[in-house]
Design a protein around this nucleic acid. Structure first.
Length: 491
RNA sequence: GGCGCUAUCGUCUAGGGGUCCAGGACGGGUGGUUCUCAGCCAUCAAACCGGGGUUCGAAUCCCCGUAGCGCUACCA
């Protein structure tokens, strides 16, 4: 039987990293096994669900490059793919279960249940449904229903049974059915609960493997019981572990960016995000670290997903991201860096394609994220760029800096051709004529031109700035040096 | 509290009874290289949660602790 997996988010927020990894594993397992990846939106909780969330989740998935074979926008023969549109199916399934004696109406109100629950807690007992509606006669049920009394539908959990399954990532997991309680299948307002809708849909959609977070482990025995009540074979389950923040707690907004969209804003490239997420709980061989999505599709094996919770390490994300940025060809890298900058308040509209390419080339391997381009490239993005105090102080302490800067300005001014080669040879010959190391010219020039001690190669910087700005920044620095340096000859 | 899951360097992990005085990567240290930075190269430090078993032999299997996390709703 061919593999069918699904990612089934509830649209109550953005696509967070935990969900993204779950989606990734589902997607990869489908691709690696020639199966089908279904996307289903679990919007049975009208209170918390929203269309914006649905859109954000779809956007997040698309950004990562995880294309679904069936689901919103693409359709498929097992639709609809929004649970809100599948209510008749749940009603029908509920009726079948009730007719078969696996479910019964419960007339207890939420208030009564809450009261009993706190009483049980007060007595030091485990809070559980006391089963009082389970024994009501068919006549009473019919009468109360006919009278329009609201009722939820509860599952009649079989007592004294072991419910177990062989989890792909954890091995055998077993629960005693007695601790499972008569959980609710359909709420009194007619909406199915998660566990019920999930099983009905997974069955209807012919899902073969349920890959999800381990926060669903305790739902699994309930779902298995429902499958059994339908006399159906449960799918294979694989529960991946949780993703934790640096403090060891489940990753949440408190830890900063958690939606994939936010990582895009941080300058993380989808290739990097996918690679990093894949490695959070899965390893090919413990040695290979860098993968493209296409490579993962070939080598991913669900059996190699590990059971232990993983801490989300931003530094490693950035390193992996850097590797992917580095591997982008020049055209693509230029496109992405410039797109990021323009989306974040930098106007590049007057820059030529040649300049953009040279700019991104000059940034070189200094980008861990696309966002780093704003910082590393600040010398060209701001005019003039901010002067770092420490850098300026160092320049002030340099004897004769003004003369060097002035001389370089003159050479640059007189340069016939504006090329990297011309800039470099002019600078080096100035140094040798002055009997100093090239570094003695370059270091002060870097501070004058970029406001910093560290920057891209000085000739790239000059070329990108253009003759006019190079000369004026050099001269301005020379003047300021004469005005401020204790080394300057005072008239 | 109950139920469940997890436990190898700070972090992600490899390892599945001998080949492990535990390997790789990030991060950190040191050295080299280019105009600085980044990068690259080299190099160093850094872990089998504790205790009992089983076994000739245990990071690997079992048990018990401990710790962390999850669930404990007419949320998903």
């Amino acid at each position: 039987m061919s593999v069918r997996v699904r990612f089934a988010p509830s649209p109550t927020g953005f696509l967070h990293v935990g969900g993204a990894r779950t989606a990734l594993y589902n997607y990869l397992h489908a691709r690696a096994s020639g199966g089908v990846f279904v996307l289903r939106i679990e919007d049975t909780d009208a209170e918390r669900s929203s269309e914006e969330s649905t859109r954000a989740i779809l956007d997040g998935l698309r950004w990562l490059g995880l294309a679904w074979d069936e689901g919103p926008g693409v359709g498929g023969k097992y639709g609809p793919y929004f649970q809100a549109e599948r209510r008749p199916l749940y009603a029908d399934a509920a009726k079948r279960l009730e007719d078969a004696g696996h479910a019964y109406p419960c007339f207890c109100t939420p208030e009564e249940l809450e009261q009993r629950r706190s009483a049980q807690l007060g007595r030091g007992e485990d809070p559980r449904y006391d089963g009082r509606c389970r024994e009501r006669s068919p006549a009473e049920r019919a009468r109360r229903r006919a009278a329009g009394e609201p009722a939820a539908l509860r599952f009649a959990a079989p007592p004294g049974r072991e419910v177990a399954w062989d989890d792909v990532v954890r091995g055998r997991i077993a629960f005693q059915s007695d601790v499972l309680d008569d959980f609710v299948l359909v709420r009194s307002d007619g909406w199915p609960t998660y566990n019920f809708a999930c099983v009905v849909d997974d069955l209807a959609m012919r899902i073969t493997h349920v890959i999800r977070g381990d926060d669903h482990i305790s739902n699994t025995p309930r779902q298995i019981l429902i499958y059994q009540a339908f006399a159906a074979e449960p799918p294979v389950f694989a529960h991946a572990s949780m993703i934790l923040g640096p403090d060891g707690k489940r990753l949440s907004k408190r830890h900063g960016a958690t939606s994939v969209e936010a990582f895009g804003d941080l300058g993380i490239v989808p290739e990097g995000m996918v690679n990093f997420l894949a490695l959070l709980g899965w390893a090919l061989d413990g040695k290979t670290e860098l993968f493209t999505l296409a490579e993962l599709e070939r080598v991913f094996r669900l059996e190699r997903v590990g059971p232990n919770p993983a801490v989300f390490d931003t530094q490693k994300l950035e390193w992996i991201n850097a590797q992917h940025v580095k591997r982008l060809d020049e055209v693509e890298r230029t496109r992405r860096v410039c797109a990021w900058l323009e989306r974040h308040g930098h106007d590049l509209s007057k820059r030529s394609d040649e300049w953009r390419r040279a700019f991104v080339r000059a940034l070189g391997d200094r980008l861990k994220t696309l966002a780093d381009a704003a910082d590393v490239g600040a010398f060209a993005l701001a005019d003039p760029p901010a002067m770092q105090t420490e850098a300026w102080a160092e320049l002030l302490a340099r004897p004769g800096a003004d003369a060097r800067l002035g001389a370089l300005a003159d050479r640059v001014q007189a340069l016939p051709a504006w090329t990297l080669e011309a800039l470099e040879s002019a600078t080096r010959s100035l140094a040798s004529e002055a009997g100093v190391k090239a570094g003695d010219i370059i270091a002060p020039a870097r501070v004058a031109l970029t406001g910093r001690k560290a920057a891209p190669g000085i000739f790239d910087v000059m070329w990108l700035l253009g003759r006019e700005r190079v000369v004026s920044r050099l001269q301005a620095a020379a003047e300021r040096w004469r005005a401020e340096s204790p080394l300057a000859a005072r008239p």
